[in-house]
Amino acid sequence: MSDTASFSSRVSTSVARELVVAVTGLGLIVFILGHLVGNMLIFAGPEALNGYAEKLASLGELLWVLRLGLITFAVLHIGLAAHLTWANWSKRTSRYAVTAAVGRKSVASQLMIYSGIIILCFFFFHLWDFTFGTKTGPGTVVPLMGGQEELGLFGLVWNSFANPLRAACYIVAVCCVGLHLSHAIASVWVTLGVLTHRATDKADAVAWTIGVVVALGFASIPIYVLVRTYIIGQGA
């Protein structure tokens, strides 16, 4: 009989790992939704967004606690998901000559690891770009919005997205986030042991909706900046 008693053996099974991936994923989803709501302040103008950023910064040590928590979640989520994926890839070393599409499998479910990798790369780029980017000086001046005034974070973001290539990269990245979430949110209820057969279609629909809302929500910012910069211009 296998060792069922020891705690370490109970938490190291594939099911336990999936559970940790699910719980940490849920935490990350909460962060992403909060982040999205904060980001929407860009539409309210420089004061709103910068004020929000300052308020966050004023949390001081608490902010670092939150950041540490977030990093822990991310590390666990990414580490275990990568480990499970790697392990799963090694379970069938001889491939089928013919494969057929069966079941509910969506593009999203097949691309989890790839959308995850893109999100991870994007995450570092995003930190370097905005979190640690210079929020003073000429780079934060948006002639379109406020003449020669430095607009802090708002200016940095705006000018960043005014570059079409960079904006496109962002849009692709947030679409990956949406895609990732559309499968994650559908499947997390299975992992957490709460999804009934009858609710499966609903869970899929809810997950898909959230995925689309998140992707559109984040993408709306670079699109807005691009539209303001190149189409509407100063007139708005």
Binding site: S2, S9, T13, S14, V15, R17, R92, S109, S187, V190
Partner: peptide, 18 residues
């Protein structure tokens, strides 16, 4: 616990909910 442990030990993968 025991059945899941054995499932892992036999070399089956985990569930990706597909």
């Amino acid at each position: 616990i025991a059945m899941v442990q054995q499932m892992d030990k036999e070399g089956f993968g985990s569930c990706s909910k597909r």
